[in-house]
């Protein structure tokens, strides 16, 4: 059963506009003109309980606006949405108690002078987490997020990575059933990104929480999500599984070959060369031609290593956004 259900969700902002110059500025005092900005245009989708879905799109595509509507921060211009059976923008306490939204740009809000432990205690009281559950969850989160060194530190003095760890602990203390993660790895170093990905994967697996994730980093999506939704110019361009995206939107596969001897064949006769170094090459080959090309490679060359891979997710998504190749699953 769908935990998140969205039908024709649309968000149009009215942005004030005027020509440059004094005259236009004076005129705008009496006659303001607005331009409609269609941030999200009639998108529809469903997310089942326990699913982890990546929400991908270029800047300004409507990802964050959609997440804000689903978490109740924004009220749509039109359309319907239900999260956990509630209309999000009514912001009923029963709904707000079961969701969390974490923004990479601002992982923690509120009193920055408090220590992380103070902030956790505040969350405990706000979300009415029992003492025993609080102790258990804090212990678990402390271990998973390596929070111990942060508990007695003031929130304002934390680095971005530490803020994200603390923000996750604050958001997950009350065990929300639905998580909205908006660019959670924004600005984090490699170690912090790995830790965060591992943590989110463990959390969703052990708690069965449903998660909608936006990120510009494909590795986040590949690590955490089986299903992705591509959004571009406010419209859904793809909604399906990761593997399907490559199959339906890229007619090519990547064949990587390493030769055993010093032979220097004409690689372009096998496919388009996308990478080449001494004795190794990566070829872009049409899907239907892959078996024939492999047969030729094995017959004509002394092969030390050979692999066939889907093209990198970045390049497939880039192709979808640039060329508008859209094939919804």
């Amino acid at each position: 059963m769908a935990l998140i259900s969205v039908q024709g969700l649309t968000m149009t902002y009215q942005a004030p506009v005027r020509q440059a110059g004094l005259k236009a500025a004076v005129v705008s005092l009496f006659h303001r003109e607005y331009r409609a900005i269609n941030a999200v245009q009639g998108i529809s989708f469903e997310v089942d309980a326990g699913e982890v879905v990546g929400f991908i799109g270029p800047n300004g595509a409507g990802k964050t606006t959609t997440l804000k509507m689903l978490s109740g921060i924004l009220q749509p211009t039109s359309g319907e949405a239900r999260v956990l059976g509630c209309v999000p923008w009514k912001r009923e306490p029963v709904f707000l108690r079961q969701i969390a939204m974490i923004r990479g740009s601002q992982p923690i809000g509120g009193a920055g002078e408090l220590t992380v432990l103070d902030a956790l205690r505040f969350q405990q009281l706000l979300y009415e987490v029992s003492h025993s559950e609080f102790q258990r969850n804090v212990a678990e989160l402390t271990e998973m997020l390596d929070l111990q060194p942060l508990l007695e530190r003031q929130v304002r003095a934390l680095s971005l990575g530490e803020r994200m760890r603390a923000g996750l602990a604050l958001a997950l203390l009350y065990r929300p059933r639905v998580l909205f993660l908006d660019e959670p790895t924004l600005g984090l170093d490699v170690t912090a990104v790995r830790m965060l990905r591992r943590f989110v994967a463990d959390y969703t697996r052990t708690t069965g929480a449903t998660m909608l994730l936006t990120s510009h980093y494909m590795a986040d999506v590949e690590t955490l999500c089986k299903r992705i939704m591509l959004i571009d110019k406010g419209q859904l361009a793809y909604n399906g599984d990761l593997a399907g995206l490559a199959i339906t939107n890229s007619p090519y596969k990547v064949v990587k070959v390493a030769v055993a001897d010093e032979a220097q064949p004409d690689w372009s006769s096998f496919g388009e060369v996308v990478e080449a170094e001494e004795g190794k090459v990566a070829l872009r080959v049409l899907r239907q031609e892959v078996p024939a090309v492999i047969t030729r490679l094995l017959a004509e060359l002394s092969i030390a290593d050979l692999s066939v891979e889907e093209p990198p997710l970045e390049s497939v998504i880039d192709q979808v956004f640039r060329e508008g190749v859209v094939r919804c699953a």
């Binding site: 804000k68 978490s71 921060i73 912001r91 707000l96 969390a100 601002q106 809000g109 509120g110 706000l126």
Partner: peptide, 17 residues
């Protein structure tokens, strides 16, 4: 500052804060 967005997500009336 947009901080009020955090408040809108809390299960309490915003005026309480």
């Amino acid at each position: 500052s947009g901080e009020v967005s955090h408040e809108l997500l809390k299960p309490q009336p915003v005026v309480i804060t």
